[in-house]
Structures are given as structure tokens and as C-alpha cells.
Design a protein around this nucleic acid. Structure first.
Lengths: 212, 212
DNA sequence: TAGATTGTTAATCGATTAACAATC
DNA sequence: TAGATTGTTAATCGATTAACAATC
């Protein structure tokens, strides 16, 4: 079993280490990294055990080489290749974000089932019809599919992505999707997350009156 | 301590129950609800303990009243009132989503610091300058602030949201933000989530060769 | 009634935190 | 060296799963 939470935090550490590197910091202690990422020093050290990188009691960790070690663990040889399905508002926002970003993410293509959108360049990438997915991806390795279609179509789209041989999905549609055991799904349920935040923010306001 | 994961699942159950209700289903067993949400029956029953709603061995749970009970726990008297800060691609996508949606979310206002965007209607809502936030929210109860600004500005925006008295934040910027203990923060780190999915999808493809 | 399902308690599992000998 | 910090093990905590008597 690979520790999900540890991987999440390692990704976070790597973004912070990038900043430290840019700002010219050469060394960092677990305590500092903890402070910068909102964790505890013990947590940081435990996470780094997984990476295998080892610091020393006098200077802590060398920023550049720790970053390299984490990247070695997290990153593929080449960037992360992605197809995005569903070129609505959210899909387009993500696409233009990927275009702008000097990024480790490479968009291979986008897909939609609306003929007003297909066979055009949208958000900087060619948009194909979903029916063409399997064919287009036949000789192309794609690491992730991003689903940004309405809930009603999410499962059908997931099926096609799986059918095209993609082993990872990030699902923005507000429904669970079913996939074979050899496909990894990460859900980004935006509205559900907002509801969750609303719930817990209310418990934070205990004692306050809501007279707004 | 309130069980975070349970709340997440209860929100999911409620969306599924809404669908069941619409489709005319009157009763549902824990096993079915589990299947529909990708959980186990034991998990579902344990979660429902928190709600206090009680079914029976013959018919399971009554969809309509279970939904009511969960909503009673999750939902405020009125909808969830929100301000959104940062009217870039993602911010606009979320705004237009909220406009479209016949929703439990009420956008009070949007904010930005770019004078090309402020004092206009964008994505269906008036966009104010962030400097005006405190003033505009003085006599308005706002439950959540949504942060969709670049990483470099996220902390400053969070500070203003907190300053305006808002107790919940959903942060889309790819950096941790620091807030007082009485403010709840939910992070939606899109790029980090994509990286995480990429990592675990790779472990799913064990044994495959990447010749793409 | 008989049998499947419930609510709940006990057992397990995983993840976080505390503690501390090793060490630079 | 002396002291702060490391890597790692043991203790704790919380969340999930299993089990089962109660029950409709």
C-alpha cells in the first residue's frame, strides 16, 4: 500500500522547495518545512522517510537535492500527458490554465460531444468528438483523463477513457464513477467541497447569531 | 470532533438520494446506497448513525425522509452565501456555473484587484475591488469565501476575507494559507491533485511499457 | 414465523504524534 | 565538545470493517 496522504504532502513540499530554491535558500530544517506547509516537523520527517532522502542534524536538508529526490519519486520521465473531456466553462478554464502555465502537464487533446465545439481549437487545443477518442489515442500514451462534463454524462465518458487504455482519471463531475480496479480515480467534487466547507465553517461560528 | 469523512459522504448520499427521489424510488437499503456511492454497507450505516435517522430491516430507509434528515444536518436555514475573489478563468468558470445552477449557493459579490475587471458585471455578478471587501460585507452575512487568485496573492486575499469576518474559505490557489483557528479552510489544489492522480495511475500501470 | 437488514459494539487497520538514541 | 536536529520506533489517535443481537 502506498501512503496517499504522504504523496499529497510530498507534492506540496516540492512546490514549497521550488520556491525556496528560487529565493536562494540552500538548506531547510524539518521544522521550517513544517511551518511553511502547515504540518508538524515529525510529519515532515516521517514523510521524507518514504523518499529515502537523508539530511543531517546541522544543516537539515539541502533544498536542491531534496527537491530532486522528491521529483524523482513523483515525476515520470517526461511530463504528464492529459486528455480533457468536456469543453464547458470549467473545461475551458482548465485548458487555458494549462496553456498559460509553463507546465509539467501536456494536453494531448480535448473532447466534447457537442458538434458546435468539435473540430475547432478551443482554449488553445484541438477539440475532437468523443467518438474519436479511442482512434486518436491508439498510438499515443496518455497518462490521465480529466472529466469536466455534466454529471449525467460522467460515467459514459469514464467508460470511454478506460476503453482508450488510460489508467488515471480526475473527475470533476459531481457523481462517483465506476472503473476497473486497474484505473485510479481522483475526485474533485467542487460543489460538494463547498458544501463541506459551509458545514464546518458553521461549526466554527458557534455562538454567533446569523442575522444577515 | 466532527467526523470529516462522514460529512463528505453524507453530502454524497444526499445527492444520490435526490436522484433516487426524482426517479420515484421510495425506499433504499444500506447495501444499495453503498453500491451507488462506492462504499460499503457497513460504512453507510455507520455514517447514518451520525444523522440519527433510523430505517428498518424490511424496507431499509425511506428516501424522502432520510434525505430530509441529512439536509437538516448539513444545510443552513437559508442557502450558502458566498463571495468569490479572483475573476480569472477559473473564477469566471465557477461564477457562470453558479449562475446557471438552480442552486443552494448564493453569490453575494465577486472581487478582483485588476481595475479592468472591477466595477463591472462578470460571469453574471458585480465585481468589486478587493479594497472594498470589508466595507461591502459590513452588514452582510457571508458564509464562505472562494479564493481563485494566483498563488502569490492567496495569503493576502485570505487575510482580507478573514478580516471581513468570514469563517470559511475554499482555496483554489496552489499554496497553503494561514488563518486563525476559528476559520475553516478547505483546499482545492487542482494541479496538485492532478499530480497525485498521475503518481497513482503510474502505479496502476505496473508492468506496462511506456513507449508512447 | 423465517430471514434479511438494521443499529451498534468490538476488532482491525492506517495514519499521526511522541519520544529518544544516534549524529553532525 | 555541547546542543539542536535527525531517522526511526513505539504509542496514540481516528476511521473503517467485521460481527452479531435486535427487529420488522
Amino acid at each position: 500500500m502506498t501512503p496517499q496522504k504522504t504523496i499529497e504532502r510530498l507534492i506540496l513540499y516540492s512546490t514549497i522547495l521550488e520556491k525556496l530554491l528560487t529565493s536562494g535558500t540552500t538548506c531547510v530544517f524539518s521544522k521550517q518545512l513544517a511551518e511553511l506547509t502547515g504540518n508538524t516537523a515529525a510529519q515532515v520527517r516521517r514523510d521524507l522517510m518514504f523518499v529515502g532522502y537523508t539530511g543531517n542534524p546541522q544543516s537539515g536538508y539541502t533544498v536542491s537535492s531534496l527537491l530532486e529526490s522528491i521529483r524523482g519519486l513523483l515525476e515520470p520521465e517526461r511530463g504528464i500527458s492529459i486528455v480533457l473531456v468536456g469543453v464547458g466553462n470549467l473545461g475551458r478554464a482548465l485548458l487555458s490554465f494549462f496553456v498559460t502555465m509553463q507546465s509539467k502537464f501536456t494536453i494531448i487533446a480535448s473532447f466534447d460531444n457537442d458538434s458546435h465545439k468539435t473540430d475547432r481549437v478551443i482554449g488553445g487545443f484541438h477539440c475532437y468528438h468523443v467518438d474519436q477518442m479511442r482512434q486518436i489515442l491508439t498510438n499515443t500514451y496518455v497518462q490521465l483523463g480529466i472529466i469536466t462534463v455534466p454529471a449525467s454524462q460522467a460515467q459514459a465518458v469514464a467508460d470511454r477513457i478506460v476503453d482508450a487504455g488510460v489508467k488515471g482519471i480526475v473527475n470533476f463531475a459531481p457523481v462517483p464513477i465506476k472503473v476497473p480496479a486497474d484505473v485510479y480515480v481522483e475526485n474533485m467534487h467542487i460543489t460538494m467541497t463547498i458544501e463541506k466547507a459551509a458545514y464546518f465553517s458553521r461549526s466554527k461560528s458557534v455562538g454567533e447569531r446569523f442575522d444577515g
